[in-house]
Simulated scan of single mutants.
Amino acid sequence: MNKIAEVTLESIFAFIALFVLARLMGKRQIAQLSFFDYVTGITLGSIAASLSLDEVKLIQALISLIIWSGSTMFLSWLELKSYKIRVLMDGTAVVVVQNGEILERNLKKVKLTIDEMMQFLRDKNIFKLSDVEFAIFENSGHLTVLKKSELQPLTPKDAGIPVVSEHAPKLLIIDGHVMEQSLQDIGYSKEWLIGEVMKQGGVDFRDVFLAQIDSNGNLYVDLYRDKLKQPQIKQKALLAALLKKIQADFESFALQTENRSAKASYTEMREQLNKLVQTMLPYLKD
C-alpha cells in the first residue's frame, strides 16, 4: 500500500474513532467544557493527528484513545456520584459582591480582577456596584448577578394583574402546505384559515410562505414576495370566506357539545347558513 492510501485510510479511521468516542462521552463534556476537558480534547486530537501522519501503529493509537476517553467518562461518572469529587474537579460558585460591597478575599480566591468584574457587570447593563444585591462567580466562568429588589423590573404579578398562560406558537402553513394536525389541535377549520389568508392579500394557501398563530389567537401570515404585489382581495370574496368559516364553526360546535339541545341548535343554524351561502354565493363571485 502506498503512503497516500495509507494516510487516507488512517485519517478516516481516526475521524471515525474520534466521532464514536465523542458520542460516547456525551454532550456534557462538550457543553460544560472545563480546563481538564479542554486538555483532554487537545490530547485526543493530537493522538488522532499522530495516527494520520506519524509513524504510530494503529493498535497503539487506538489503545491511547480508549484510555483517554475512558478516563474522561469515568471522572464524569464519579462527579455524578460524589459531591466531593465534583467540587475537586469543578470547584464551587463564589460570592464576589454582597449588598453592593466587593468581597476582596473571594475576588482573589477566584483570581478575578476588579476590571474583569466590572466588565461582567457592564455586560449585564449594570454600571454601579450599589445596584447589586449579589454577584456570584460560577464554575463556568460566568458572573451571575441579582439586582436589588427596588431596581428589578415590575412584573404583572407584582402589580396584581392576571395574565393568561401562553403555549408555544403553532405553525399552520409552511411553504404553501397546511399543517393539518396543528390546525386540528387549536380547533380551527380550513375555511377560517383561508379567510385570514385572504384578509392579508392572499388567494390560496399556496400564496403563503409561513403562517403562525400564538396562544392569544393572533395569526401572522407571511406571503411570498411576488404575491405582495397583487391587489388586496375584494370584499365579496372575504364575505364568502367568512360565511364558510362560520358554517364550519357551527359544525365543529355541534360535534364538540354533549348537550342534545345545543347540538340540534348548532346543526339547524349550520343548515340555515348553508342555504344562505348557496343562495348568495353566485352574487359573491367576482
Rank of each mutant, 00 (worst) to 15 (best):
V163W: 09
N139V: 15
F137W: 14
M117A: 06
K108C: 08
L80S: 11
R105G: 01
V110D: 04
V97G: 01
D115W: 03
K157D: 09
F134Y: 08
G91V: 06
R122G: 12
E104Y: 02
I102L: 15
S82H: 03
V110Y: 10
G91E: 05
L75R: 02
D90L: 15
H142D: 07
G160F: 15
F120G: 06
L143A: 06
G160C: 15
Q152P: 05
G141C: 11
K147Y: 01
I126K: 09
D90Q: 13
L146P: 00
V164M: 13
K147G: 02
S82T: 05
T144L: 14
K81I: 08
Q119V: 12
V163D: 02
S130T: 02
V163Y: 07
L154H: 05
L88W: 12
G91H: 06
K148L: 00
E138C: 13
W77K: 12
F127C: 05
L88K: 07
N125W: 01
A93C: 07
E116D: 05
H142R: 12
R122M: 14
Y83E: 03
L103W: 00
A93T: 05
V97H: 02
K81L: 10
L103Y: 00
L103D: 04
L154E: 08
L151W: 08
I136F: 12
P156L: 15
S130G: 03
Q152M: 14
S82P: 00
W77P: 01
S82N: 09
S149F: 04
Q152C: 12
V145P: 02
L129W: 02
L143N: 03
D90V: 07
L75D: 00
T92K: 15
A135G: 09
S76G: 10
D158Y: 11
F134P: 00
D90R: 13
E116N: 05
D90T: 03
A159R: 13
V132T: 01
V164C: 12
A159C: 12
M117N: 05
A159L: 15
